[in-house]
């Protein structure tokens, strides 16, 4: 199996007035094609830096990022992004917000095809009938659904999610997790999810990677079986509880609050 995303020995530091601030330290990470990788770690450990590196929005000091075996030199149209803030364009309808990436990536695509593609995705996330609404007329959860549609409308190889469910209430969040599974069953993309929610990572991901505190390196990896067949009930089994405990303990280590087991 080929790796869609491969991060090899990446080290990066931000230049600040008080000298360099190292954020990533020899971090390596691989996500196989079609897989879903969740990255968890303490606050400010460089998770968002990771997303910007993969998106080609910045270059690491050392090491390299590969997409489909090709080194990332700059932004590329095969990436889709969604953030905690849905950043929808208020002056466009929901439909036209979803279409936006196609205007950049496929300027020659007929409007009719764009609309059909956007409608198909909006229906998939339960936003049928809201196509002509403005973002301000939708709830936070609905806005985030539209944002997800926009992130995948151009069929990106890699979907980068930077805490997209972080600002939602617990019930809405669980709804969106299920929407995420539904999307994955329909659309072929490889996902990197940044999150602070361990249950979220267990529900959505095939592999959970715990980053250490700053400068971050991959401290712990956990493969999670089940894929998109998982249900919310699976989060309340003894097996899930054990996994959650393991991850929580790893986070505490990353925060420097627990001893590393011998």
């Amino acid at each position: 199996m080929t790796n869609t995303v491969e991060i090899r020995h990446v080290t990066h530091a931000y230049r600040t007035p008080n000298g360099p601030l190292p954020v990533l330290d020899n971090l390596s990470l691989a996500i196989p094609e079609g897989a879903f990788c969740a990255v968890v770690g303490p606050s400010g450990c460089g998770k968002s830096t990771l997303t910007r590196l993969i998106a080609g929005l910045m270059k690491p000091d050392q090491g390299e990022v590969f997409l489909h075996g090709e080194a990332v030199r700059g932004p590329r149209s095969t990436v889709g992004m969604a953030f905690q803030n849905p950043v929808l364009l208020e002056w466009r309808s929901i439909l036209d917000n979803v279409i936006l990436p196609l205007e950049i990536v496929a300027p020659r695509m007929p409007r009719r095809d764009r609309v059909a593609r956007a409608r198909e995705l909006l229906a998939l996330v339960g936003l049928e009938g809201f196509e002509d609404k403005r973002p301000s007329e939708l709830s936070g959860g609905m806005r985030q659904r539209a944002s997800l549609c926009r992130a995948i409308v151009h069929k990106p190889e890699v979907l980068i999610l930077d805490e997209p469910f972080g600002a939602l209430d617990a019930f809405t969040r669980e709804d969106l997790w299920q929407t995420m599974h539904a999307l994955r069953r329909q659309e072929p993309f490889t996902t990197l999810l940044i999150t602070h929610d361990l249950r979220e990572s267990l529900f959505l991901a095939d592999e959970v990677v715990v980053l250490s505190g700053r400068p971050a390196t991959a401290q712990y990896r956990m493969a999670v079986p089940g894929g998109t067949a998982r249900t919310l009930d699976d989060l309340y089994t003894p097996d899930a509880a054990e996994r959650l405990n393991l991850l929580r303990h790893q986070i505490q280590i990353a925060q420097g609050r627990a001893e590393v087991p011998a």
Binding site: L57, M81, V87
Partner: peptide, 12 residues
């Protein structure tokens, strides 16, 4: 907000 720019910038 930088995210607004990033949506399009990440697409090249």
């Amino acid at each position: 907000e930088p995210e607004y720019r990033d949506i399009l910038r990440s697409l090249g």
